[in-house]
Design a protein around this nucleic acid. Sequence first.
DNA 1: TTTTGCGGTTGACATGGATCAAGCTAATTC
DNA 2: GAATTAGCTTGATCCATGTCAACCGCAAAA
Lengths: 247, 247
Amino acid sequence: MPPNTAAKEISLKVIKTACSNCNLRELCLPLGLSDEEMHRLDDLVSTRKRIKRGDYLYRAGQEFDSIYAIRSGFFKTDVLLEDGRDQVTGFQMAGELLGLDGISAERHTCNAIALEDSEVCAIPFPRLQSLSREIVTLQHHFHKVMSREIVRDHGVMMLLGTMRAEERLAAFLLNLSQRFTARGFSPAEFYLRMTREEIGSYLGLKLETVSRAFSRFQEEGLIAVQQKHIRILDIPGLKRLMTHHAP
Amino acid sequence: MPPNTAAKEISLKVIKTACSNCNLRELCLPLGLSDEEMHRLDDLVSTRKRIKRGDYLYRAGQEFDSIYAIRSGFFKTDVLLEDGRDQVTGFQMAGELLGLDGISAERHTCNAIALEDSEVCAIPFPRLQSLSREIVTLQHHFHKVMSREIVRDHGVMMLLGTMRAEERLAAFLLNLSQRFTARGFSPAEFYLRMTREEIGSYLGLKLETVSRAFSRFQEEGLIAVQQKHIRILDIPGLKRLMTHHAP
DNA sequence: TTTTGCGGTTGACATGGATCAAGCTAATTC
DNA sequence: GAATTAGCTTGATCCATGTCAACCGCAAAA
């Protein structure tokens, strides 16, 4: 192999690691930054990490030092209660941040587990804090990201507190669809990365209930399910289900 | 009235408005700041606002410009769904912050309603952002406060997703008890500021279920209830209820 | 003081989702 | 390619909580 080829490969790799060349920059932390600012962020976000399917990115109780931006792949986060019960608190995909809950006690409060082979950018939190004191846009955006997480959680609380099983699942599918769309994928057709049990845990339901709801949706022509492959056939129908099925 | 008395009163009032003289400073935003830093925060947090019982501090949809620190009183926040369903997303007491959800879209996403006559300090958010670029401790603390809110929400999701009615109520009472304790009140005896319906909405239960759970706790000698007056008789008993009643 | 009404309690009954159980499907391992 | 297994589907039954309804009690209004 001629040496210049190797050099090119290396340099390509370096370029690909930078925020400024990441195709997720409009979804992720760099949103709204100028070129100059983004290059300063590049220095910070240099560590990339591969996580195999099933592996932990971090565990509850571990010391917190970085937040993570998902570059590719799919994660779930879950919380464990002392008595063994656990709950999935979220599913995260490319361009989303993991670890914000750890800031509060400087210790992670949940587990983050890859649901497929994934790649994340580690962002050392103290350095992010310094940089966001210098780059106002970064500070503002970071605050918005944290706040958005709070709003998202309120949505989940709403779902768990007031919706019935089928409404919850409809809301879940519509949410996935919308997030896939934002990433340039089909809004109507996707593979679920999580099991029925994980969906159930997230939605406060048992896996059997999730399965039955999928079957019902299929019978009613709202979706086509084949294991983890989902095609949404009637988005307005799913939306109607959510608003008109009030008790 | 001699003029110097009036002057004294005014100056007292001014002093009382400042963070540096607020007895909540160890719970609230100023936590960890030096005297000099706290005085700089004082300038920012100058606007006090009284909210009568039943009145809105802000409403979902309103433009966001400030977060609020509760100086005295008690609030609830709730989210409304299009179809009329609503859910209480939290109860807030003195020293806690309201409005963090509004940062994300620069618009409040929930209603904040006083459950008793209350007083809040308005903190203009853009100014808080500037100041936290200058005062590192303030920046760090603010990040922790936001993160703590995320962790709290995960706790509620856990509660709504995996706990049964009596466990939820036990968790709720223990949480109140602990927060009252942190404010120097009795851990065992307090008045609820909210109705059974509001508790139910927060816990994802109907008011009848809440009422029955209260009665059951009383029968079992865990608490003494008389309307809104609660005395916790057996804190370990309530804790046991939460961990050993797993399905 | 009496009236009114909201919030709370309690009972009887209904039901959505949990639980238990069996069988199926499609990966993964051998 | 067969065997194994994790994940999924479906049916039968059960139970916690919701629903509906009656009544109680305290606080505000008259």
